[in-house]
Every structure is written in C-alpha cells, then in structure tokens.
Design a binder for these strands. Structure first.
Lengths: 236, 236, 236, 236
DNA sequence: CATGAATGAGGGTTCATTCAT
DNA sequence: GATGAATGAACCCTCATTCAT
C-alpha cells in the first residue's frame, strides 16, 4: 500500500558505471555524456516520475532504447545525473575553498555561498535536477546510489559551518543542523528567482544571499517575539 | 446533456471549501475531506505524477473510482489540495498578524516566521504537498487553478516585508524579491529537519529561524568577500 | 475472443415487463413511459453501446439508478424500446392496410410504403433507434427479446409483397427476399435525407419512394448489362 | 519535445495508404495492414464503441498496445478503416466506369450498381464497417477524418445519376437527392441478405438489384395512391 | 551502437449496477 | 419511487523495457 514502486528487475544494480565498451575513439562516451545532460535537463523540468526516456532520447538525439546501451535502466540514469551534479558542485566548492584556504572561517563561509549562487545562476540543470531528489519523487534505489556523494557534499558545508562556529564567528543560539538546512534551502530557492532567464545581476544576487544569511535581514538588534503554541490556530 | 464526450464536466470546480452547510445524513462531505487529506498525504510523499489514485483511495478508505464522485479528475483533486493548503496557510498567517496588528513591522515579520514554522512543524502534509508544485511535476492546468491563491498567499509576505522595508527596518543592500524567495525557501526547507518525526523543540526551531533570517548567522559585521566569476570553475 | 459481452447477471431475464408495481394512480407508469421515450431518443443517436444510462436518466429527468425500479437492466430497457417501436410500426401499418382492405395488392403495397415514409418523416425516434439493431451493436440477449416482434413486423411486409407477387403484379425476375430487404433498406435510408430537419415535403418523399421502388428509376425498358466477376477488381 | 502532454501527437495521420515503398526488412507495413483488416472486421460486427482494441489486437495477432505503434489512437484507427473502405470502393467503381466509358448513361448506372453489389457480396468487411458510420456511434473527430473521402465517394454516384438524368433516362418525378440516398440504402442493405454466408448467386443478386432499382418492382404502370396525413395514426 | 517493432504492467477514467435511506 | 454514495469490471492509453537486426 502506497509503497515505492521499483522499476523493473535491474539486472545488475551495483554495476553503476558500465565500464566495458569504453574504448576511446568510439562515439559511445560522447553519447553517454549527451544522455546525461539530456536526462539532467528533463529531470530538472519534470522530476523523476515525470521524466520519460523517450524525452531524454529526443533531447539527446537518439531513440529511447539506445539509452539501454549506456545505462541499465531509468533509475541508474537518474542516479548518475544526481551523482554527477553532486560531484561537480562539491568539486567547485572545494576548489574555491582551496583558493581561500587562508581566509578566516567566516569569509570562507561567505565564499562558499558565493560559489553556490554563481553555480546556480549559470543554470546548471544538474542543480535543479537535484532539487527533485528531496521531494520523495525519487525511488529509494536511486536515493541509495547517491547517498555517499550526497553526504560528502553536505560534509563540505558542515565543515565550513562548524569551523566558523568553533572559531566563534556564529551566534550561539542557532542550531547548526537547522541552520545548514535553511542555508541550503534558501540558496536553492534562488534558482526560482533566476528561472525567468532574463539577464541577471549575479553579483547582486550573491550579495543579497550573503548579507541576508550572514548579517540577517534586519540591522536592528533585538530579541524576537515568540508566539504561544495556542496563538497559531490551524484552520480546518 | 447527451453530447459528444467533452474533456471535463466541471461539476465542482469552484466549490473549494464549502464546509458546513450540508444537511445531516449526507456523508459525502466527510468522504470528500478524507480524500483531500489522503491526497495531500500521498502528494507530499510522491508528487503529482507519482500519486496514484488507487493509493489515495486506499488511504481514504474507498475505492479509486469513488474519487470521481467528488472530483472531476486527478488534476482537480491535486489542485484542491494545493488550494486548501494555501488557503489554510494564509488564514493562519493573517490571523496571527491580526493579533499583532499594533506591533512594529519588524516584530510582525518575526511573528510571521514563527507562525510559518509552527505550522510546518505540525507536519501539515498540505505544506509538503505544496513544495512539489514548484518542481514542474505538476501540469499546467493545476498550476493555473492555484495561481490566484498562490499569489494571494505570496502577497501577505510581500506586504509584511515591504512594510518592514519602508519603515526602515531592513538592510538597504538586499533585493526584496530575492529576499522573499530565500526567506520562504529557508522556511520550507525546515520541514526536512522535521521529517524524522522525533519529538522536536518547536520553540528552538522558531528561534533559529528568526535569528538566522533576521539577525543573520554571524554576529560579526563586515563586508563579505566577493569572488570573481572566473574563480568559480564549472568542472565538466 | 471477440465475443458479445453480456451485461451483468440480469436476475430475471425472462420477466420482461415488471408487472407488479403498476397500481394506477401512482406516477410510476408515467416515469416508465418517459424513460422509454428518453431511451429511444438516446438510442437513436448513439446506439446501444453508446447509450449511457445517465444520459437516459437526464433526458427523462431522473437519476440513472431510478431506471432500475422500472427495468431490470440496460438490455431490458433497450429491448423494450425496440419492441415498442416495432409494435407501433406494425400497428400503424396494419391499420392503414385495414383501411385499404379492398384495394388490389399493388395499391396496398404502395400504401404500405406511404405509411412507412410518413412515420419516418415524423421523426419517430423509435424508428431510428431500431436502425441500430441491425448493426450488431446490440447484444444477443436484446436481439432475442425482439425476435418475435421483429418477425411479426417483417411478416406484414412479406404478406403484402407475396400477395402482390401471387396476384401477378411483380416482375418475375426478382428474388422476393432480396426485394424486401432492399425495399426496407431504401425506406429506412430516407430518414437520413430527413435528418437535417428543414421543413420537408412529405408527399414528395412518398411519391419519390413509391415511384422509384415500384416503377423504377428509369422509364426506359431494356435488359441491364451484367459485368463479369473479373471485371470488378478489389483494389488492396 | 518534452512538453506538457498534449492530446494527440499525430504521427501518421496523413499516411493513409502508402503501400509499397518500405524498404524490405521492416515488418511494420504488414502489421499495419493486418491491424486495419482486423479493425474493419471488429468494427463491422460491433461498431466503434463496441470495438475493443484488445479484440483488434487479438484478431491481428498482436497485443493491444502494439496498435499505438501504428496509429495514434482508437479514433485514428477507425478513421483509417473507413477511409480505406471508401477509397477502395471508389477506386473499384471508377475503374469499372472507366471500362464502360462509352456506354450510355443508363447502362453506366446499371454497371455501377453491379459493381457495388459484387463488392458487397465479397463480404468486404470494410463496407459493413462503414455502415456503422452513419449511426452516430462514431465520434465527431472520426467523421471529420472521413468527410472528404466520403464526399468524393458520393460524388461518383451523384455524377452517374445526374448524367443519366440530363440524358433523359430518368423519370421526371423523382427527387435526385432522395433517389441517391434510397439507391445506396437499398444496395447497402443487401449485405444483410448476404450475411448468412451460404453460397450465393451473385449474378442473381445483381439482377434483382438492377431490375428493382431501375425498372421498379412492378411492371404495371399506374399512378400510385397517396394517403392523407391523417390516415396514418401514430399509436402511442 | 543504435533502431524498429513489440510487450506487459499499470494508471486514469467510465459506466452499469447496487444498496441503504 | 427515487436518490446519494459507492463499487467493480473494463477500456484506452502510456511507458519502461526487450530483442532481433
């Protein structure tokens, strides 16, 4: 009842990267790359369940069954899209952080935010595809494929944040786990501002994000009012 | 009447809430409510495309075709779920804001954040269902159904934010549109912290959210470093 | 494989006319009549498979389930429509023939044609409904219900035709069975000329039918040319 | 490409006949032909609404969904059946008429009747399928698909009839439109005599049809009696 | 490497039919 | 006598997947 529907029997779930037919010179790797890009594109727009292999094929310029030469099934294709996105994001992040290795922990946090926004702004579909992963639209199996990379990616942020925290740069009254979640939630939501595609002021976006998340919306310092549970009525 | 089958018969398109006035004896409204709740539940977990009417039926305790007695089709069902969620959220928000009518604009913003978090924390599936709407998983038709309610909901936040802004409470270097998007992105992402379902410290969550969003993550005040576009390399 | 699909289990197939609840004064008989008319109407437009009980109900001004108080199921309803139409047609025919009892057999044939056309022209939906019966759209069970009435109706024509034949009024080189089929085929097809609904010259129609069928299209008398089987090629 | 699902993708809407030029090796055209034949067969027996794609598949020796490789949907399949039948009938008719180009207009009419009957007698299911089209059982969309071919077919008859008329071969007191309708109605009804499938005397059938329609049922020439409207009572 | 052709499982939707009221 | 509410069987259609070529 209401369970995840597994997609087919997937002959060899764990052989993630079909390595055999990879002899350089063939056009297979190119097609494989095109398929990943196409899948990311469709995934970003429609989510996993909404992604039709025929659409992916169309975008990539091949017929749907051709996908099966490069990937074992839909789940694996989606999984690799997610992983690719995560790996790229992490690489970008780590690279930038490496460049700012000697900055203090707070500047490094600001720089991480900057890098994230800039990457999003470049419309990388992989990022938008990834957003769907968090919606439960993606089957368990795919989620498991990505787990390690997801954690690795999250760890980078956790690291940056906890460094800033232990170096005394962060407010004491904030739960770090929650903060990270909200931080990424806020950053990811930016892609929706971006979406319209009009030429946009990336530097402005970055500044807004940094300011809001690091310095807060308000300059005024005060204790924020807290409601009583009973004040918030859930209207049926 | 007796015409060539058209696409939708629009029996109850606009009967959105209509709660009380059913003469006793009819159990339709009860079932209808159960169906909405069930749909919200499934929608929250699987998204629109992943939602099977049979699942909705099962959760609601009826057979799938019974849904068609209450809604014209899957899209309408989903649409009413979204609308219901939006309407409830807005009502809650407005009620709380009304209670704090005389607070200054900044406190009212804090109070709005508080109310939102509290509502999310109560696990209202309607909220989580709503998150899927932004993923493109939902067909155009449904999106159009919700448009007006969505805008009405957004307007409440826009109002609160712009009041705070015009009263001089917000930092000058923040784009209001972006700020609102990030604010809501951050708030919505909280439901994922919540997800595990363990007993949670709602007051703590609220405080974290308020502090982070209003006062910022850091107590230190400084100009944040800005990367050059070229520093952020997109690794293919 | 490709067999007639019987509609449900039909508790009592042979109890054709539910006789019990017939106490005069109740409004049941009136509704029953309205249902028959409505069914004839829908049947005439959509055929048996295309007829939805909900449509019949709508036309009759009741809900679909109400039908089950008056008829055991869809098949029985349709069957009675057909029978009603047949009985009426036969009655009309016989009445007219009785009025012309003393005419010679050929005039009686002409008169029968006249009566048929006039009835059709009055748009009696029962007649149009009947046309569908011959298309195989109607399940066996219904066909059996009507069989005796159908035969009785056909017999009237057979009688008229064979009288004309044995009285030496008809051409010798015509197969009577085929002639009757074509005669009725031609007459029924008139309802399609009629269909447009514009005011029509019934007397003209009658004359055309009589002349064409009795005197033939052509005044010229000659032996008609006959093709060789091989001349008619079926182009695949 | 990758858009919100629309109602029909119109892959092969206009590829109506296209018989020969498929490079050998593709078995699609063969299957397509089998599907058309199967559909015609089922259509002839059950009508459009009664035709189940599963039945069509079974008759054609494929699974139902395979149909969607060759046709966009049920309507298109039915439409092409109708069109195929019409095109073939017209082709046959025109061919025969071409062979008798130099006969006088009346003989050409006789020959057309002959060809029609002979085609019907060969049981071409396409013809019987076509009869259903006139019953209203067929959705508007399908009717529109066939419209032009239907008119083209009718035009052949109209031509033959009007030629005979203007050459002075037809009786003056007959409405040509009505005559054509009755003529075709009569001819089509022949397929019901044929139906039983027993070995039949096609030449006899042809002669009966020609004689009855051209020379009339009766050899006696007289003015036919006309009823008064009031003589024909519609018995409720 | 890729496609043409087909399959099988399932999902949305319709509709005759039931039954308690 | 008739309706409100629901069911179950089927039907059209979609889509991931296969396999021979």
């Amino acid at each position: 009842m209401v369970e995840q529907k597994t997609v087919a029997k997937s002959r060899s779930v764990n052989r993630v990267v079909k390595s055999a037919p990879y002899e350089p010179g063939g056009k297979a790797p190119a097609t494989r790359r095109r398929l990943l890009d196409a899948a990311a594109f469709v995934l970003a727009e429609k989510g996993f369940t909404g992604m039709r292999l025929s659409d992916v094929g169309e975008v990539a310029g091949v017929q749907a069954p051709a996908i099966y030469y490069h990937f074992n099934n839909k789940e694996e294709l989606a999984g690799e899209v997610f992983i690719t996105g995560l790996v790229r994001s992490r690489a970008t992040l780590e690279e930038v952080l490496a460049l700012h290795e000697n900055d203090d922990a707070l500047d490094r946090l600001a720089v991480a935010i900057d890098a994230h926004v800039r990457l999003s702004a470049r419309q990388t579909v992989y990022g938008r595809a990834w957003m769907h992963r968090s919606t439960g639209d993606v089957p368990e199996a795919v989620e498991q494929m990505c787990q390690s990379d997801e954690r690795a990616y999250a760890r980078v942020w956790t690291q940056v944040l906890s460094n800033a925290h232990s170096d005394g740069f962060l407010r004491g009254d904030i739960d770090l786990k929650t903060a990270q979640q909200m931080l990424l939630g806020a950053l990811n939501s930016i892609s929706f501002v971006t979406r319209a595609g009009r030429a946009l002021d990336v530097d402005g976006l970055v500044r807004s994000a940094q300011t809001m998340l690091l310095s807060g919306l308000s300059e005024t310092q005060r204790a924020w009012p807290l409601l009583a549970e009973s004040e918030v009525v859930d209207p049926f």
